[in-house]
Amino acid sequence: MQQEIELAQLKKITDIIQKRFDFDFGNYAMSSFKRRIQRVIEIYKYASIDALIDRLNDADHKFFQEFLSEITVNVTEMFRDPTFWRELKESIIPNLLLNDREINIWHAGCSSGEEVFSMAILLTEMNLLGKAKIVASDVDNAILAKAREGKYPIKNMEVNQKNYERYEGSFLLQKYYKEEAGKAIMDKELVKNVEWREHNLVSGGSFAKFDLILCRNVMIYFNQQLQNTVLKTFHESLHKYCYLAVGSKESLIWCEIANKFVVVNNEEKIYKKVKD
């Protein structure tokens, strides 16, 4: 029977990681972080949390990268929340076109890349892929490599196709991949101009200016304090009157600088930066 993990033990883990790998988990949301630690203990079959603590104490960078991959949540879908993607197609992207310049898009916390491919498909069907510059970032190098590869289990494509239909895509999703050995191999043309970038939202700060930032279901793993910090990074990274999209059950209203944004679609949680 699993033993309940104490807060003091979690603190010990975050301290070791901070000291040895200069990585700060201290402001992750505790309820999910605790479960992720429990998960690591089960995957590696450690006898107790103390065994994991010992392992982290003498771990090399390679082990830490593996650990990081297991801690971060990589559950995503293409066109998740179809109505959100429809809103992008029908309202947000057309609005950005009025600026008459290249559209710069940042997928912050892109995970295995499903949303990046969704965006590329959306832009392709609007004949705008050449007019957009996409940066896709994640803290986990291993998942970035997977995203770049664009190979997904074929069984996932059923949900993806259903989402795409609800989004009212122009074709069948099959147009954009070929099936090989149980995998859907995405068309590389879609993402040939995507810049894949290792970036930690916790400490990475702003590195460019964007017209649209997507960070959906990422900040939910952070506590309020860290959400405030990340929102400042996004604020700094957006041109004025440009857009930030978060998950449909996330809200900026609990954040310190919420007043620098207005909500343009509350159902889909799309915000616009209105103050510098």
Binding site: M30, S32, R36, V73, V75, I220, N223
Partner: peptide, 11 residues
């Protein structure tokens, strides 16, 4: 979460 707030997760 401790402190009587909700947290959502897509785990």
């Amino acid at each position: 979460e401790l402190g009587n707030t909700f947290a959502l997760s897509t785990e």
